[in-house]
Amino acid sequence: MAHQVLNLAMIVCSALMIWKGLMVPGDILFLHMGHAPFRAGDIVVADREIPIVHRILKVHEKVSGEVDVLTKGDNNAVDDRGLCAPVCRRPELDQQAARYLPYIGMVTIIMNDYPLVKYALVGIMGLFVLTTRE
């Protein structure tokens, strides 16, 4: 009985993961709302329509505590001056990356690019739920 409940929970979980989508280009990043101040080298997330995960290149902290931050993607040739106002302000940034799981998000990308695969997979999972009754 317990085994069956666990199995069902796992199926529902993975279906949800696939449905909701976690991260963009293939890798899963676990984020946290950092209480530590932003420093150069920190990886931060700007929550746009497609989240931008970039590294901090410049930090200017004013006497008032206000912070100006400039980011740049490791693989980009230029910094993000073109992506936001001359220098991004702190509220633009939400979270810092803490952990890393590679490639698993690829599933999500495929799901989003080919909705049919998504429907098929969720359908099969639904079938599992129905057929795992012993």
Binding site: R39, A40, G41, V59, K62, V63
Partner: peptide
């Protein structure tokens, strides 16, 4: 370890800012 991202920061104070951090090389 998949890779290392190595970078050099320059840190200094100015009258306007209590902290300035600039990555000069990575």
């Amino acid at each position: 370890v998949k890779q290392l991202f190595v970078y050099v920061t320059a840190e200094y104070e100015t009258q306007a800012n209590v902290l300035n951090q600039v990555v000069v090389w990575d």
